[in-house]
């Protein structure tokens, strides 16, 4: 590839770059002056005690709240002040700390709703129900079932999403996010409420997702031991500020991190 080609440098630039990103709620800075950079196909852990601002950082990146300051670049484009659905279309998908599935829908429909992102057909198509509609629906349906099968949820496709076990609901949320074909996947405490075996299994799954779908993953976890095994790099937040960043070994030995977690 010719390195002089315009746009080629995009591949060297980070996928996601936060520069002094800040989110304030009244007097409280939930995230303050956060610098964060994430490469392509990289898996980074974002850890910190409860209330450290991890979820707020996700809400900032996904546009749930506009930043009170700083900038957010994704794929070289500014994301600040874009609407959540625009950010999703740009290629950022997420799960939620408190599971937020579409409660009235089936497992299949939860994923199908997200898969629509890459299918521009709308009102007229649905009303006319012609060939292109049927082909489109069939294609989406195939994609959805394939995704569900990969995660062994195919047999539950017609079940109500809320009837799944807690662990399966968490996995369904990940599948739903993947259905948007993201470049960046944000996972907010996907292991919450799981026992040690389930957590270990989930971490293997996350690694698998990264390789299979070629996505970058930012993984929030409260318990730092869980992410140590799979993340190449870890960022530690406390009181909205980044207090440390480095390899798992560096983080484990970092005095500020030890202090933050002892105080937790």
């Amino acid at each position: 590839m010719n390195p002089a080609r315009p746009g080629a440098e995009k591949f060297d630039s980070p996928l996601l770059q936060l520069d002094k990103a800040t989110l304030r709620f009244g007097g409280l800075a939930a995230v303050s002056d956060l610098d964060l950079s994430l490469g392509r196909n990289e898996l980074v852990g974002l850890i910190g005690p409860n209330g450290a601002g991890k979820t707020s950082a996700f809400n900032l990146i996904t546009g749930v709240y506009p930043p009170s300051g700083g900038s957010i670049l994704f794929d070289g484009r500014p994301m600040a002040n874009r609407k959540p659905h625009q950010i999703a279309r740009a290629g950022i998908a997420r799960t939620f700390q408190n599971i937020r599935l579409f409660a009235s829908m089936t497992v299949f429909d939860n994923v199908r709703t997200a898969a629509r992102l890459h299918c521009p057909r709308g009102v007229r198509n649905a009303l006319w129900r012609g060939r292109s509609f049927r082909d489109g629906e069939k294609e989406i349906s195939g994609q959805v079932m394939e995704l569900l099968e990969i995660f062994q949820l195919g047999k539950f496709h017609a079940a109500a999403a809320t009837s799944l076990s807690y662990g399966d609901q968490r996995r369904l949320e990940i599948i739903r996010a993947l259905a948007t074909k993201p470049k960046l996947l944000l996972l907010d405490e996907p292991a919450a409420g799981m026992n040690a075996t389930e957590k270990a299994e989930l971490m293997r799954l996350i690694q698998f997702i990264k390789d299979r779908f070629q996505v970058s993953i930012l993984l929030v976890e409260h318990d730092m031991k869980v992410v140590m095994g799979i993340c190449e790099r870890i960022v530690v937040l406390d009181y909205g500020m980044k207090i440390a960043e480095g390899t798992p070994a560096e983080i484990r030995a970092h005095p500020k991190v030890i202090e933050a977690y002892l105080g937790d």
Partner: peptide, 11 residues
């Protein structure tokens, strides 16, 4: 069902 989740899925 959930406006926040819906917009996070590009809706």
């Amino acid at each position: 069902d959930d406006e926040v989740a819906a917009s996070a899925m590009g809706i």
